[in-house]
Nucleic acid binder design. Structure first.
Lengths: 186, 186
DNA sequence: ACAGAAATTAGACGATGTTCAATTTATAAA
DNA sequence: TTTATAAATTGAACATCGTCTAATTTCTGT
């Protein structure tokens, strides 16, 4: 109940308007219950963001379904953008939420993130046969960062204010160039 | 006074702990004064972030001083990372702060952002002689997004949790690859 | 039916941003 | 210098937030 209502509230108002009290009100419980169950509002947000990560991974997989060859890379980038655009507030919450600098990243969140990375790494490896695994892993992380940067600027208005109107094409372009530079034939 | 104290508070506690009341307390004024002068706490944050942008631009320029040739590109990427690392909280505040979805980006902030972009565009154009201006502008925006993505992941722990320990090298690698793919000789 | 454990609550607490009538301070004219 | 007008500043009230804890309700198993 809490995760459902919390996810909906996050989707509606974004992280800025998220409130444990509002979640409690929506499910008819008191604030204390909601907050104690997750060790504070931070824990609740972490749980919601982890769920978002898992949905994102599933979305990517289904977006890849049926494609083959180099087209899968385009689908991958397109899926990253698509999920973020269609779930703007929940997607943004993943990166807007920062827990206190001393507490380590909960494994719930780290694992969810790793799962998404694994999907991308699999696709990168597929277009780079014969490339050593560590190099594939490193390039994967870098390409995710590349696409993420484009996605952030596309969705927070940075690209718009700079006059850019096709961020997805830019991201696909950079990813393609880097894959080719590292030996892929696309 | 307000901007000075506000910038210091942002640097110390980050956006999460930023408070107009604390700013007022530090300069010995009341909350109302601080907030009314900037049309709410959002306006104050916008002013602080714009100042950060301008400092960032200045830092980049001074970081480029004395370098020439393709080395300037490396300096550019290194400067982007360096400022973010050395001014983590104030840098992060630029991207953590989101104003309500209906209000447009204040020109104060948009102009500061454009100024930084202009510096990068100048350097990109220098290594791509003969490239049409619109193509340079587009590639510039894309490369900034690329570096930004790497910077975000480096500083928010995403790279660390994925086992990556040299984000700067990755960013330089991607930028170099894309510049070469677009005709630069580096 | 009952006792112990678990879940849940109510309420107080300190802090936040917003708002606005009231007050103080600065400015310029007489 | 006095005065009147404008500007700056305040103080307090308000609604909301996350956190905490003692008290209460509900569940569970004997």
């Amino acid at each position: 109940m809490i995760l459902d209502a919390g996810g909906q509230l996050m989707a509606q108002g974004g992280y800025a308007r998220f409130s444990a009290r509002e979640v409690a009100k929506r499910i008819g419980y008191s604030v204390g219950t909601v907050v104690n169950l997750f060790n504070g509002v931070d824990g609740l947000v972490v749980a919601i963001n982890s769920a978002t990560f898992r949905q994102w991974t599933g979305f990517l997989e289904s977006h890849l379904h049926g494609a083959d060859g180099p087209d899968r890379i385009v689908r991958l980038v397109d899926g990253y953008f698509g999920f973020a655009r269609d779930n703007l507030n929940r997607w943004a919450a993943i990166y807007e939420h920062r827990l206190p600098p001393d507490v380590p990243m909960p494994s719930l969140l780290a694992d969810a993130r790793s799962a998404l990375t694994t999907v991308v790494a699999r696709e990168v490896a597929a277009v780079l046969p014969g490339t050593p695994a560590p190099a594939v892993a490193s390039l994967t992380r870098s390409l995710i960062a590349t696409v993420h940067g484009h996605c952030v600027f596309a969705l927070n208005g940075s690209f718009a204010v700079l006059g850019e109107n096709d961020p997805l094409a830019l991201a696909v372009g950079r990813v393609t160039e880097s894959l080719r530079a590292n030996g892929a034939v696309l």
